[in-house]
Simulated assay, not measured.
Amino acid sequence: MTHAHDAHEAPDLDVFFTAEFWDERYGSKERIWSGNPNPHLVTTAAELAPGTALDVGCGEGADAVWLADRGWRVTGVDVSAVALGRAAIAAEAAGVADRTTWLREDLLAWAPEPAGFDLVSAQFMQTPEPLRTALHRRLAAAVRPGGTLLIVGHHFSDLETTVGRPHMPELMFTAEQAAAALDPAAWEIHTTTPSREVTDPDGRPVVVHDAVLRAVRR
């Protein structure tokens, strides 16, 4: 839902988190995202046995479809009906419609089923405090014992690069800040800040850094 990619002007935060903003954003192009699964999700899921997964801010469904194609039963949630419509079409085309469920929800208020999922993934859900910590706590509560929480976001250092993102430092966070929403006694917590190469709006290679929290509920 609230991915901060590819926007050159910082939108008003009161508008940024609305269904209207994201329906218009998705409706402005035939496709917004690449259609490829997020790399940190691929790495994490490769080490897990398929089960039930929650894809938070699923957008056009690339992550959810990728998981479903590997045997997961996936619930994708987003605020945009336009994005969810595309996700459902992608799932049908991939032959995994029977393993995917799509929900339109306001993720700043919605609470998923407690202890309902083996994997909860939130990729680049960029929200300011205190909304961020509240969201992360709700997502953590949805993880079953033995399950995995994966939160990936844009690191503050990306503000120094030119990758077409809005200059909105209040939306950036570190993996350690994301981990602050968890009780260390209840979780095995791993935080990293890996780098990767992307292409800026002028076609030049740029190195960016991700904030990656991977935690397993004890």
Rank of each mutant, 00 (worst) to 15 (best):
A64W: 09
V65T: 12
V65M: 01
L67H: 11
A68S: 05
D69A: 15
R70L: 01
R70G: 15
R70N: 13
G71V: 10
W72G: 06
W72I: 09
R73C: 12
R73H: 15
R73T: 15
R73M: 11
R73V: 13
V74P: 02
G76Q: 06
G76D: 07
G76F: 07
V77K: 05
D78F: 07
D78E: 08
V79C: 09
V79F: 00
V79Q: 04
V79W: 00
S80N: 03
S80I: 05
A81F: 01
A81C: 04
A81I: 02
A83M: 01
A83L: 07
L84I: 11
L84K: 08
L84Y: 08
R86A: 09
I89W: 00
I89K: 12
A90H: 12
E92N: 10
A93I: 02
G95Q: 01
G95M: 06
A97Q: 14
D98V: 12
R99M: 03
R99V: 03
T100G: 07
T100W: 04
W102M: 04
L103C: 11
R104Y: 06
R104E: 15
E105W: 04
D106F: 05
L107H: 03
L108G: 14
L108T: 15
A109K: 12
W110A: 00
W110L: 03
P112E: 09
P114C: 08
G116E: 02
D118Q: 07
D118N: 12
V120L: 10
V120T: 08
V120W: 06
S121Y: 13
A122S: 13
A122D: 08
F124V: 03
M125T: 13
M125D: 08
M125L: 14
M125E: 10
M125F: 14
Q126V: 08
T127G: 00
T127I: 15
E129C: 04
L131F: 08
L131W: 10
R132D: 02
R132S: 07
R132H: 12
T133V: 01
A134T: 14
L135T: 13
H136P: 00
H136Y: 14
R137Y: 08
R137S: 11
R138I: 05
R138C: 06
A140F: 07
A140H: 00
A141C: 05
A141R: 12
A142L: 04
V143A: 03
V143S: 01
V143P: 04
P145R: 11
G146R: 07
G146E: 04
G147D: 10
G147K: 05
T148Y: 02
L149P: 12
L149C: 11
L150A: 05
V152W: 03
G153L: 09
G153R: 01
H154S: 13
H154C: 10
S157A: 14
S157F: 07
S157H: 12
D158I: 13
L159E: 13
L159V: 12
L159C: 09
L159K: 06
E160R: 14
E160Q: 14
T161P: 00
V163P: 06
R165H: 14
R165E: 15
P166E: 03
P166R: 04
H167N: 13
H167D: 15
P169H: 06
E170K: 05
L171S: 02
L171C: 08
M172E: 14
M172F: 14
F173L: 13
F173T: 15
T174Y: 00
E176N: 01
Q177P: 01
Q177S: 12
A178N: 05
A178R: 08
A178D: 12
A178F: 00
A179F: 05
A180G: 03
